[in-house]
């Protein structure tokens, strides 16, 4: 694959085997994934896709629909899940044990060779697993699916900046150093980012410089993301500047995102509220918080666990050598 894959808008879906062949291979992949978990005594759960609450994260856009509920005069707003995380965590609190979800999730506005608005996600939670334990299991699962044995590279977020961007300590680097790095690597001009927005320039170094070099012909696992990108991951006990969060890249493509899960109900509320405040600042619509999740976390603490979400359409595209994930699904958004 080239460094910066460039894809045409309309890749013929007829390439790479006939439709029946592709459907059969996809069916085999789903079977392989389920078998992987059955063999480890992880049970499948099919949590609801509709919820009265949404995800407050500013970068995720939930679709919604208005449901006729008997006894209610007005239609009630329900959000389609962007991931099964919240109901799965409620189940974990209720004592479900190890669980996985394999099914559709929805993210409004995401459409590209690597995105579909409706896509298939594999998400699983392992009780008693550290972040590193789960990283190993994710790699094992990917190895079980990809046609050949790929080498594995594990490195911390900080090490990735050292190795691939030549930035010694990204934590203390300035916005200007990030901009210089982008220039040095010949990245095209960036439009619309404030000069002093270090976090965003740092993200651009990651996506434009590092990811392009990551995992070319290898599985790369990046861990210990900055604490500000913790989302719902725990902050490291050894180093409070980093979160116990990891991402997996194959051929430079982000494939999975995992956490050593935050347990404290109060911290959940704080992070949700912070996201809502951010939404307000960005003039994005507010979104009802999942009070049921928050209540459950308070009443029945979340067992110590790690969880990860993996894009199945991307995994299938990697396995089959598709350039657009649409080639591996029956009908893409525009054909549905």
């Amino acid at each position: 694959m080239p460094n910066k894959p460039s894809f045409s808008e309309n890749i013929s879906c007829g390439g790479q085997g006939s439709l029946p062949e592709r459907l059969k291979k996809r069916s085999q992949l789903l079977q392989t994934l389920r078998a992987f978990f059955y063999a480890r005594a992880v049970i499948e759960v099919d949590t609801p896709m509709l919820s009265q609450a949404g995800v407050p994260d500013v970068h995720l856009h939930s679709l919604f629909t208005d449901v006729r509920v008997p006894g209610e005069t007005d239609r009630q707003r329900y959000y389609l899940h962007t991931s099964p995380e919240y109901p799965m965590k409620r189940l974990l609190c209720e004592g479900s044990g190890d669980i996985f979800y394999l099914g559709k999730v929805f993210r409004d506005g995401d459409l590209s060779p690597r995105h579909q608005v409706e896509f298939t996600m594999l998400e699983w939670y392992r009780i008693g697993f550290s972040m590193f334990d789960l990283m190993d299991e994710v790699v094992e699962l990917i190895q079980a699916v990809l046609p050949e044995e790929w080498s594995v590279e594990r490195l911390s977020y900080k090490q990735a900046f050292q190795r691939y961007a030549g930035i010694d300590d990204i934590g203390s680097a300035t916005a200007q150093e990030c901009m210089d790095c982008l220039n040095k690597h010949g990245v095209p001009e960036i439009v619309g980012v404030d000069e002093d927005d270090k976090a965003l320039w740092e993200q651009l170094v990651l996506t434009e410089v590092i990811e392009a070099q990551l995992g070319q012909g290898a599985i790369s696992v990046l861990y210990h993301y900055p604490a500000r990108d913790a989302a719902l991951a725990q902050i490291s006990e050894e180093d409070p500047t980093v979160a116990e969060r990891f991402e997996v890249f194959v051929n430079g493509m982000e494939l999975a995102n995992g956490y050593h899960e935050l347990a404290d109900a109060e911290l959940y509320r704080q992070r949700f509220e912070a996201s809502l405040a951010q939404r307000k600042g960005m003039a994005l619509p507010s979104i009802p918080l999942d009070e049921r999740l928050l209540q459950t976390l308070e009443d029945l603490p979340l067992p110590d666990c790690s969880g990860v979400a993996l894009g199945v359409d991307r995994l299938f595209a990697l396995q089959q050598g598709y350039e657009d994930i649409r080639q591996g699904i029956a009908f893409g958004l525009k054909d549905a």
Binding site: D57, H59, E189, V191, G192, E208, D229, N257
Partner: peptide, 27 residues
């Protein structure tokens, strides 16, 4: 579109006067 992060549009375009093909990334 990183899973958790700001989305960008990577754009290849042609300057119609000079004919040159250029690239820019827009927030």
């Amino acid at each position: 579109q990183p899973g958790k992060g700001q989305a960008f549009n990577r754009v290849r375009y042609r300057n119609l006067v000079t004919g040159r093909v250029l690239e820019k990334t827009f927030k």
